[in-house]
Nucleic acid binder design. Sequence first.
DNA 1: ACTATCTCGTACATTCCCGTACGAGTTGCG
DNA 2: CGCAACTCGTACGGGAATGTACGAGATAGT
Lengths: 217, 217
Amino acid sequence: MSTKKVALPGDAGGTHTGASRPLNQRADAQRNRVKILAATSTALHKDPDASVAAIAAEAGVGRMTLYGHFTSRAELIEAALVESLERGEQVLSEVSIDGNAADAFSRLVRSSWSLLDRSRGLLAAAQRELPAARIRDLHEASEARMRSLLERGQREGAFRSDLPISWLLATTHVVMNGAAEEISAGRLRLGDAPGFIDATLRAAFAAGTAPVAERHR
Amino acid sequence: MSTKKVALPGDAGGTHTGASRPLNQRADAQRNRVKILAATSTALHKDPDASVAAIAAEAGVGRMTLYGHFTSRAELIEAALVESLERGEQVLSEVSIDGNAADAFSRLVRSSWSLLDRSRGLLAAAQRELPAARIRDLHEASEARMRSLLERGQREGAFRSDLPISWLLATTHVVMNGAAEEISAGRLRLGDAPGFIDATLRAAFAAGTAPVAERHR
DNA sequence: ACTATCTCGTACATTCCCGTACGAGTTGCG
DNA sequence: CGCAACTCGTACGGGAATGTACGAGATAGT
């Protein structure tokens, strides 16, 4: 005579980027949803293996409430990742891509860095919980921006052309992630990271260095 | 009237690098021990979360046999890591560190790469199972070699000095790991990896590029 | 050939976490 | 103010993995 099914937010919206929430939700519930999403990010930042219970605790709500909003751990993590990426998109879309390619790259990297630093744990959790294809899909937007910049840089001769774009992209990700790890390990100060990352990647990608030696075969 | 305690290999040997096995072990058992260690490496290569059961299956022995040699999952992984690193040491110690620092670095990186590619899964598992301090301890030997080479390179002016050694070291690790990931993702051919890694790091570490800009504060 | 050593299956206890069910209390909202 | 929407504790069921217990059978080494 009481409980229903706790709303079940519904999947009405397509897979699109639009932030379409069901509408018929109570203000109170919407707030909790936001709290939970935020807590997911921070909890996973501390421990990428954090349990649903831990996340709920971090959010200050009961575990059951959380299950009212998200039917499974995977769904929760995916939602948190989507939200984080949307927020990131908002920031990155304001970074100017024009002008000198190398400088634009630096701007983009520096902006990406702080975003990645925060959502690192979330991403790690997602990698264990979601199909790899899905993750790559979600990253497509930010990835495309960086990719096109790298392409332009290569065409204009600002970046070396002896390495494929996919490698440059991977290297960028990996160096930023590495910086985050070094920070948690206490071997790098937070404030030093952006400069180090930028300096390293700029030098690594600059045109004019000796091309990759074909030493195999 | 039968079972004892299944040998319990004993911890007689110190923490030293010597390969001191208990001696009073049956030849048959020693062989299995080796098989298990090898299987640990290959099983974790496929899936860093592989269960003890899966590892035993990979080794072609019963799970119980495995527990006869290693009392816990952690002990198993540690033993496998130690063995892998010892084998690595043997290879790396034959790489010439002398002469041109940049070239020596390339040689070292290329040798390290193939080793790391194999033991990658094992390392990932170890990072979840063993205390971080222990892992760092075990890596000290190979790390020291690379570190001293980087130091010499900086003194001689072959490598840039605006970035700390620890960062160069971290970058080296991270780029090699990234290459391994790109390979498993199917975006990089195995044969291309050494050249790409080398080309990237050489350029990133070379002296003479613009120093890290102090853009913060 | 005989014996201590080793293999290994089955079975079990434990722990941890996810997801579901139920139901009573609380609160936003019209 | 009254109802539907929401919260949230407790409890349960299922599954997976670790580590232990027991004991029968195979094998190496002397």
